[in-house]
Each structure stands twice: as C-alpha cells, then as structure tokens.
Write a protein that binds this DNA or RNA. Structure first.
Lengths: 205, 205
DNA sequence: TATTAGTTAGAGTGATCGCTCTAACTAATG
DNA sequence: CATTAGTTAGAGCGATCACTCTAACTAATA
C-alpha cells in the first residue's frame, strides 16, 4: 500500500488557494473561473477537484483565510502592548498596494455575506473577536485612568474598529489622498475621543 | 414618418435600470445575468439591447446612478443647514434594510473600480465633490468659532466622510449591533474632534 | 390609408462555464 | 517485483452565458 502525505496535500491546497486569491484580486468575483485558477496554479481541473469540492468552497476558503489572517495580525499588534499604535499601524499600511488588494478582496467577500448566511456568521464572529480584544484594551486603559471612564469600552471599540474600515475605504475612493496628514488627523480624533474629560494627559499614542 | 418619444425611451431605460439593481442586490455581481434582468423587467433580451450596449454598460449605469443619488442626498442634507445632523441622519439610516442593500451594491461596485479606471475616476470625483461640501461647512464653522480652527477642513472632512463608510461597514459586519448607542458614541467622537480646544461650547449638533 | 420608423419578441449563436470521467502515471508498501 | 492507492491530466458534458438576428407588430406621419 501507499500512504498519503498530509503535509504535501495541505501544501498543494494552500498553493491552489494562493492562485485563487491572485485570480480573485485580478478578475473579481464575476470573472473568476476554474480554468483561470487552474492555469494560475499550473494544474488541471480534474486535479483541482481533488482538493476542493466546488468553486464556492474555494471562494469561501479564500475569504475565510484572508479574514482570519487580518484578525490574527490585528490581535497580535494589540496584544503586543498598544492598541492605539496598532490602529495607526493598520492605517499606515492601508495605502500599500497589496493590502489595498486584500481589502478589495474583502469588500467583495463581505458583499457575498448578504447572500450567504454561513459567510455572514463567519464575518460576524471574526469581527466580534477582534472588537473584544480592542475593548479589553480600552477597559484596561480606563482602569489606569488613561481613557475616559464614561465611555462604554465595547461601543468605543466598535467605533474605532469602524474607523479602520473607513480609512481603508478612503483609499478605495481615492488612492491619491494625503494619507500621512489624514493619519495625523485621526490620531487627534482618537486622542480627543478617548482621553478623560478632566483635561488630564492624553493616553499614550 | 414616426418620431421617437425620448421621454418614454428614458422611462423604459430607468425601468430596466431598476430591474438590474434589484437583480444585482439579489444575485450579486457574479450571478447577475441578462436573462434575469429581462425577466425582472418583463422584456426580452433583444429588447434590452435597444436601451443598453452591453451588460457592462448596465452595471456602470446602475453604479453611477446609485453613487450620484447618494451624493445628491448627502449634499442636500448638508446644504439644508447642518452637516453634523446630516452625518447623524446618514448613520441612523444605515441600518435600514434597503439602505444596507444599497451599500452592499456600492461595495461590489467599488470593488470593480479596482479593474475599471473609468469607474474609479467616477468614484473619486463623486467622493471629492461630497467631501468638499462637507469641508466648506467645516470652514464656515471655523469662522464662527464653533469648530477647532487648527483643523484642516479638507482633511477633517475626509476623516468624517470615512467614518460614515465605517459605520455602514459596521452594519455589514454585524447587523445586530446596538446602533443607537453607537450613534451616541459617534456624536461624542465628532463633537470632541471638532470643538475648539478652549473648552468653549460645542458646535451645534 | 399607405408608408415608414420605432418597438418588441424570442429563437438561435458560438463561447464559456463548472464540473465529471476515464485513464495514465507515480511511488510506497508487501 | 507486484500490488495498490494516491496523483495528475485533459477531453468532454450539459448548462448557461452574453449577445444577435429576423421578423412581426405598433403608431405617427404624409
């Protein structure tokens, strides 16, 4: 008998996923075809279906992977010590070309949640997790007196998280915006939002 | 001879556009077919092509119309007197079902700009126009001493505009969020961002 | 009323789609 | 080496796609 090599299998799967992501970003949801993915991955259609059940399964996997990767990175940034600089980092990265592509991919995938409850649940769950991490950070800041204690941490986290989406949306609306200036403005915005009303020192950036 | 009726022609065009929008929201970019649009509009494919050159032409028209309508409404709200209440209005409306559908449509259309420079230019132009209206309002507020004069009106307008997108994105990520609470938080956010540092009275809501 | 151009329909076109199927090939086991 | 199962290829299937074409129909002019 011959036994299968699960490592190799998974590697091939990831290879196909990467190819699908490339095609997805290049051709969009509507233009994406199995044939394209196969060509990009250098395999045949029959081969592809040994790794994925259907086209939708590929798309779901692409979207889920991108979402998890984004959430993971953000969580790591926040937990490494400073949520606000994490936000700044995300914003600064927003203008980079490949990350814009990722966001475009995310937009199309998010639009699909309107039709696919399973994707919607996944998106809601990942968003909630990330939001909670941010909320925890804010709550801790409130205990330290660095953040306005009258704010609801969960709500504030939701708002800040929304601002991140808004910033990334900016670069889609107009890629030529003066992002450094905008980033400065957002730093002011966040600082004024979060700092205690007493006029005490602002929270660490 | 018989002369054509341009009014009737335009009406039919709009009818088809409305049908296309319905199908677009229902089936998404990838699932949208000419046959579907024809069925929704109650016409035949041959008929449809008397009004539009191609499928892409229909999609472009749908997106452009939605974009212009959104910009027009926002401009009207702002110019009717109060930009900040206009923002609040937009946010309050974000959770309504049909407006969420509109935003989903916008997301997919915006994603298309990544592949279609003409759409990208249109989006950039409309965004800029709307942003300028908001910037003018802010500049006027600065003259009246209601808004922090150290802010760059154009940059601040961009940021506020981004927040609107962020809020609408929230409802896509999680439709069950407590939007009234979030709206309150955003009102605080905006007020703290815009009000002069002197601790003078906040700008009118 | 005769003419002519706008309006509408729907069958039909070639192309492409997602996907299946058969079968050759490869390599790990006995 | 023989066996067996995993790997890969690619032709081909039915369905569907965007779109065209012919022609019937309608109504405004002359």
């Amino acid at each position: 008998m011959r036994r299968l090599d699960p490592v190799k299998h998974e590697e091939k799967r990831q290879e196909i996923l990467a190819a699908a992501k490339t095609c997805f970003a290049r051709d969009g949801f509507k233009g994406l075809s199995i044939a394209d993915i196969c060509q990009e991955a250098g395999i045949s259609p029959g081969h592809l279906y040994h790794y994925f059940d259907s086209k939708d399964a590929i798309l779901d996997a692409v979207g889920a992977a991108a979402l998890e990767e984004g959430a993971r990175q953000f969580a790591q940034l926040v937990q490494s010590g400073n949520a606000l600089s994490a936000i700044a980092t995300v914003i600064e990265e927003a203008k980079q070309r490949n990350l814009r592509t990722d966001f475009i991919l995310f937009l199309q995938w998010a639009a699909e949640t309107h039709r696919n409850p399973k994707l919607a649940a996944k998106l809601r769950e990942m968003s909630k997790t990330t939001r909670s991490i941010l909320a925890n950070f804010l709550a801790k800041g409130q205990q330290n007196g660095l953040i306005d204690p009258t704010l609801d941490p969960e709500i504030a986290a939701t708002v800040l998280f929304g601002i991140l989406d808004g910033v990334r949306m900016m670069t889609v609306r107009d890629p030529k915006l003066d992002m450094p200036k905008i980033l400065d403005a957002i730093k002011i915005l966040v600082r004024r939002f979060l700092q205690p009303a007493t006029g005490a020192s602002a929270p660490r950036s």
